[in-house]
C-alpha cells in the first residue's frame, strides 16, 4: 500500500508505466480474492479435462483392471487395428455422421430463423412469453424427453397415435420404424434446442447499429429486405463461430439423447460412436477398445474444428482461434 502511494506521488501520470515494475506477488496479494475465485474453474478444468489425458495411454495397452495403468503391457496400435476392423465400427461412423449432419442441417439454422422472427415481434408481452416457452425444453434432460416421447409416440396407447387413429388413419410407428425414428429424432432435437439457441443470436442482433436500419429504410428496403441485408450480415461472425463449434461435434453427438430414444425395434441408426464407447467400456469392461474409439473420435473432432476455422479465415471471418 505504501509502495503504491509513493510511486503515485513520484509519477502521478505514469501509473500505467509503473505497473510492470511490480512483482507477481504484489498482484497476487492485492487481488487474491479474484485469483482464488479463478482457481475453482481452473482446478475443475485441470482435474477433469487435463488429468484425464493420462488415462488415454490405455488405448495403446492391453489394459487389465487389476494390473492397473503401469502393469498393463504396451501393444502399440493393435487396439486401433482391432476396433477399425470391428463389424460395428463402419456403421457407427456412418450413423454418427448421418445423425449429426442431419442435426446440423435442421437444428443449426432454426435458432437463426427463430431469432430473426422474434426480433420482428413488436408486442412485448407476447415476445417475452414466446421466448420463455421456447427455452423450456432446453431444461429437460434427455432421459425425461426420451421416456415421455416413448409414451407419447407409442403405437397402441400413445396420445399422438390415438389422435391419428381417431381421425381415421392408421397409426404411425414414430419410434418403432427405422426411417420414422430418424425423422422423430431430428424433430425432437430441433424442438429441444431451437429456443435456447436464439439467445446468443438475439444478443448479437441487439448490437446491430440502428443507423443501418434507418439507412436501409431511406433506400426503400421493406422489413424483409432489412432483415436479409442488414440483420443477417451483421450477425454473420456470430453464426460462423457457432458453426465452427458445431462442426467440431460432428463426430461426437449426444450419447444420452440416442440412448434414451432408442429401442430394440428401430436399431438401424442407433449404433453411433458414443453408444459404442458406452457398450464396450461401461457394459463389457473393454476399457482399451473404448478409450481408443473415444480418442479416434476426438482426433477427428479436433481436425474438423481446425479445418473449418481455417476455411472461415480464408473467407475473411475472424474464426475461433
Amino acid at each position: 500500500m505504501s509502495m503504491r502511494a509513493t510511486k503515485q506521488k513520484a509519477t502521478p501520470a505514469a501509473n500505467t508505466l509503473g505497473l510492470h515494475k511490480k512483482g507477481l506477488a504484489f498482484y497476487l496479494k492485492r487481488d487474491w480474492q479474484l485469483y482464488a475465485l479463478m482457481l475453482m474453474p481452473l482446478v475443475f478444468v485441470i482435474v477433469f479435462k487435463y488429468m484425464a489425458y493420462g488415462g488415454l495411454s490405455i488405448a495403446f495397452k492391453n489394459y487389465k483392471v487389476a494390473k492397473g495403468y503401469a502393469g498393463s503391457e504396451w501393444v502399440g496400435f493393435k487396439i486401433f487395428e482391432k476396433i477399425f476392423n470391428h463389424r460395428d465400427f463402419g456403421p457407427a461412423v456412418y450413423n454418427t455422421l448421418l445423425l449429426n449432419i442431419l442435426d446440423l442441417v435442421f437444428s443449426f439454422p432454426m435458432p437463426i430463423i427463430l431469432a430473426l422472427l422474434l426480433n420482428e415481434i413488436r408486442v412485448k408481452w407476447f415476445k417475452k412469453t414466446t421466448q420463455t416457452l421456447l427455452y423450456l425444453p432446453h431444461f429437460l434432460s434427455w432421459v425425461v424427453i426420451g421416456s415421455v416421447s416413448l409414451q407419447m409416440f407409442s403405437v397402441n396407447s400413445g396420445v399422438v397415435n390415438t389422435l391419428i387413429a381417431n381421425a381415421g388413419h392408421s397409426p404411425i410407428p414414430f419410434l418403432q420404424d427405422d426411417a420414422w425414428w430418424l425423422v422423430t429424432y431430428v424433430a425432437i432435437g430441433v424442438w429441444q434446442s431451437m429456443g435456447w439457441g436464439t439467445i446468443i443470436y438475439l444478443a448479437a442482433i441487439t448490437n446491430v447499429n440502428s443507423e443501418l436500419y434507418e439507412a436501409a429504410r431511406v433506400d426503400g428496403a421493406n422489413r424483409f429486405q432489412q432483415c436479409l441485408h442488414v440483420t443477417l450480415p451483421c450477425i454473420r461472425s456470430t453464426i460462423v463461430v457457432l458453426l465452427i463449434m458445431n462442426l467440431g461435434k460432428l463426430m461426437g453427438g449426444s450419447f444420452e439423447r440416442i440412448l434414451s430414444m432408442s429401442n430394440a425395434k428401430a436399431t438401424e441408426f442407433t449404433t453411433t460412436i458414443p453408444v459404442l464407447v458406452y457398450r464396450w467400456g461401461i457394459q463389457s469392461g473393454k476399457f482399451s477398445e473404448s478409450t481408443a474409439l473415444g480418442l479416434f473420435q476426438s482426433v477427428i473432432g479436433l481436425a474438423l474444428v481446425l479445418l473449418s476455422d481455417a476455411i472461415a479465415k480464408k473467407l475473411g471471418e475472424d474464426g475461433l482461434l
Binding site: 500505467t16 505497473l19 510492470h20 507477481l24 498482484y27 497476487l28 485469483y35 479463478m38 482457481l39 481452473l42 482446478v43 485441470i46 482435474v47 487435463y50 488429468m51
Partner: peptide
C-alpha cells in the same frame, strides 16, 4: 502488459495446482 502479468500469474497458479495434484497422484 498487465494482461501478460495476469496470464503469467494464472500460469503460475495452474502450475502450482498441477504440481500439488500430481504430487497427490504420485
Amino acid at each position: 502488459m498487465k494482461k501478460q502479468i495476469t496470464k503469467a500469474a494464472a500460469m503460475g497458479m495452474a502450475a502450482a495446482m498441477a504440481a500439488t495434484l500430481l504430487a497427490g497422484c504420485g
